[in-house]
Design a protein around this nucleic acid. Structure first.
Length: 262
DNA sequence: ATGTCAACAGAATGTTGA
């Protein structure tokens, strides 16, 4: 049975519960992975989503920051949560579907402003997080697995509005791209979005600070859908719902979709 | 340095993080 999955950094699931509901109603993904819920789990308005046909929710949360959740119309059971770099943050949850597919939902640390771990602890934490990711998935290569989330890195030149102007901007520096690539390779992960859409500029995030985000279009592809090597061929129909960035009181991220024939 | 958001602490705005 094919299923469609979406990943979306919602930037407060309580404030934007109406937008989540709109996405569920209008697009109807089978599974929606959220990041930056910024809410303790017990304060996530799960009944709103349940009433829309998404009775299954697994989540990790904390007060004010981070937080990840998976909403599903298919039964999903928790399959652990990882705390890379020992941050003690709610940045990951894994779930398993009845067909045996595991879904990892990640919110990788943003990394602060200065791309130098000697002067910016947050940048060091981001690199350490990615190194731990590499080591974890390298230990035992995942199978029948999908990894999604806000990875806070735009790896390719055509994943940013200006490769040259962003080389020293956190999210597109070579050291971050290398760390992400190492995690990807160690786990045998494949970039489903770029397998589907190999050519051209592709963004999932536009800063709030731009006066006209749509016209300026200074975006970055920070949100990703990966598949383990054994199911890479099952992924298709990738798309980014850019329109959601223009909704009333939007998140600064747009949802990324993929369908899997599994 | 700036721009714009959101949550928190604690009672108005400043801080932290993105």
């Amino acid at each position: 049975m094919p299923f469609t999955l979406a990943t979306w950094n919602i930037n407060s699931v309580r404030l934007r519960a109406p937008l989540v509901a709109r996405l569920l109603r209008e697009e109807g993904p089978d599974i929606l992975c959220l990041q930056e819920c910024k809410s303790p789990v017990e304060k996530i308005p799960g009944e709103i989503f349940a009433n829309l046909g998404y009775p299954h929710m697994i989540a990790r949360g904390e007060k004010g920051y981070n937080g990840v959740a998976i909403l599903s119309r298919l039964p999903i059971e928790e399959a652990g949560s990882l705390d890379f770099a020992g941050l003690g943050h709610a940045r990951h949850i894994a779930g398993r579907l009845e067909n045996g597919v595991t879904i990892h939902n990640f919110y990788v640390p943003a990394g602060g402003d200065v791309p130098d771990r000697a002067v910016n602890d947050k940048f060091g934490q981001k690199l350490d997080y990615l190194t731990d990711m590499r080591d974890f998935f390298g230990q035992e290569r995942p199978q029948k697995s999908i990894l999604v989330g806000d990875l806070n890195i735009a790896p390719r030149e055509d994943d940013v509005w200006s490769h040259k102007q962003l080389l020293k901007v956190v999210s597109h520096t070579p050291v971050e791209v290398d760390h992400l690539g190492a995690a990807m390779e160690a786990g045998g992960w494949h970039d489903v979005t770029r397998a589907d859409i190999p050519e051209g500029q592709l963004y999932s995030w536009w800063s709030y600070r731009a006066r006209d985000w749509d016209a300026a279009d200074k975006g970055r592809r920070l949100d990703h859908v990966w598949a383990s090597g054994d199911i890479r061929e099952a992924g298709h129909s990738s798309r980014i719902l850019r329109a959601a960035r223009g909704w009333e009181k939007p998140s600064d991220h747009a949802p990324v979709f993929a369908t899997f024939d599994l």
